[in-house]
Design a protein around this nucleic acid. Sequence first.
DNA 1: ACTGTACCCTGTAGGC
DNA 2: TGCCTACAGGGTACAG
Length: 293
Amino acid sequence: MPELPEVETVRRGLAPVLVGRRVTDLEARRPDLRFPLPEKFRERLVGQQIVALDRRAKYLITALSGGEDLVMHLGMTGRFTILRDGVRETPGEYAHDSGANPVHDHVVLHLSDGTRIVYNDPRRFGFMMMMAHAEREAHALFRNLGVEPLGNQLTADYLASRGRGKKTNLKSFLMDQRIVAGLGNIYASEALYRAGLSPNRSASSLADRRGVPADRTTRLVASIKQVLQHAIDAGGSTLRDYRNANGASGAFQKSFAVYDRADSICLKPGCGGKIRRTLHAGRASFHCPRCQR
DNA sequence: ACTGTACCCTGTAGGC
DNA sequence: TGCCTACAGGGTACAG
């Protein structure tokens, strides 16, 4: 579910609530999510002050005063709800939250100002881990991550060099977190559409024999940055919506050009092509065969 | 090294 | 109304 723009939206919503507060209690209502919750989870969290809330790829990272980081991943269906003075509020997708089943409220953080943060995750593909801040970059989760797409390390040169000699299709290549960290199924499809590139094209076509980036690579880099930035500006995308939206949900789903638009007509003026749904590495891809080459 | 598939888990939509 | 299947924004572990 959440790709980079959604996780970033959640981060921005949670940061003002978390940062500077102290953790006064922790409820772990089950022993595991996708992985077991951290050992001595409660002891390691209670009493800690939250120093910062950062994002790397699709991970949320809570830096604690004692020197450890709490790393959280939302999987497909993870969401946070803020409980403050009896009012529920969920930043990012599922903003309104009326559909959240409390059966799936797995972890609750109590903060020093009385606020509580509830982690709800029906499919439990999300997880939480703790590790020393100083060792985080060397941790298996982070060690092999590719560049942040919105940072200045994502360049045509970088993408060309990583794609060089790879026969993998472009769609799978873009979704590989070791290449570009944070792109997922939706935004990979959307970026390829904006760049006019077929998801079936091979990653090696991003560079010539000497590794010099093609023009299409420059276009692709610009498209990735653009689509992610626009999505963040719109508060991310909210899919499989519940009733009762009250303001804060994402709006970018209204701007999808191809995702989930199979058999619709391509939005590009004069194109007239029909959006096709195909599979890459088992995930649905959407593209216009007419203007994506 | 690179596929492709199965799997983790629950909820929902659509066909019958 | 129910039952069944396919599918869902994530990632990993395999087998080939």
